[in-house]
Design a protein around this nucleic acid. Structure first.
Lengths: 146, 146
DNA sequence: GCTTGATCTAAAGTAAGCTTGAGGTTGCAT
DNA sequence: ATGCAACCTCAAGCTTACTTTAGATCAAGC
């Protein structure tokens, strides 16, 4: 199984917790690539486990696959990404996490004000201020990331 | 406009930043209620601005409308919610925010380890540990909230 | 060699969360 | 009283992110 470090899709699925169908979908979307055996079966690099993990973390942050694709585009083409590559791209993810945490903390503060004062004075309640609200990112739950 | 504090849907939309169609959809889903004028137009309570704000905050947290409905069910039926009601339900939201922040901080730590060590040793990389990963919550981006 | 589980493709289906469109009515200002 | 923006309903459409299904092939152990 270690010859050339090529793993079949099922193994990749097990390692990442993703469904096989999801991985195939990601490949179709261009988020991940594979080579084929003579019998047309996909074989992935072990490094793709990391790539999928990155996708999962980014998704958890609220990023859509299109945005994730943009992030991943920073990785080198044709060459297996090395430590430096991953460090660079991971830092960008780190920033997004920081921003998201900061935003949640702001929301929490506002919520505390509302809980504390029990304000029913609608004009004063900070939660009514929609400046910090989720931007319209299309359908589905909305997230503020910046 | 202050007679009885009843506002039309367009005003509610402006105040919350939501689309009129979204508010109608929420009503259909049972997340918000309205009375009708003699001409069949919806009229909402001013307090519904708060209710919608709650929905927006909860959505931003990653909750689905079904879960939000469950949360809102804690509000009194037939009576306009008062400060105490809102305080109770908001605290539950606050807890969810705390948990989400904690989870993001854990992810950030793991990411820092990966950035710091530049580990390409896949078996050691903490990000590959899927224990803390998003649970399958159906289609769409996944979130860990608990 | 044979079986059995993993894999393949393509197309259709699903779920959430809304939006859009058509065709018609209401209500406030002038 | 008239005009026009705002409102109404209902059905269909859209986007994201996948899953499911069907029918066929592959690969690895016994």
């Amino acid at each position: 199984m270690d010859r050339n470090d090529l793993i079949p899709i099922g193994t990749l699925a097990q390692r990442t917790g993703l469904a096989v169908s999801a991985i195939r979908y990601y490949e179709q979307r261009g988020l991940i690539a594979s080579v084929r055996t003579s019998g047309n079966q996909r074989r992935f690099l072990r490094a793709d486990i990391r790539r999928l993990s990155f996708i999962l973390v980014a998704q958890n942050l609220g990023l859509g696959l299109t945005e994730i694709e943009r992030e991943l585009a920073a990785l080198p083409h044709g060459r297996t990404p090395n430590a430096r590559d991953w460090a660079r791209i991971s830092r960008s993810l780190r920033d997004a996490i920081d921003q998201r945490i900061a935003q949640l903390e702001r929301t929490r503060e506002k919520l505390d004000l509302c809980i504390g004062c029990g304000c029913l004075s609608l004009t004063r309640c900070k939660l009514y201020n929609r400046d910090d609200r989720a931007a319209a990112l299309g359908p589905g739950p909305r997230f503020v990331l910046g």
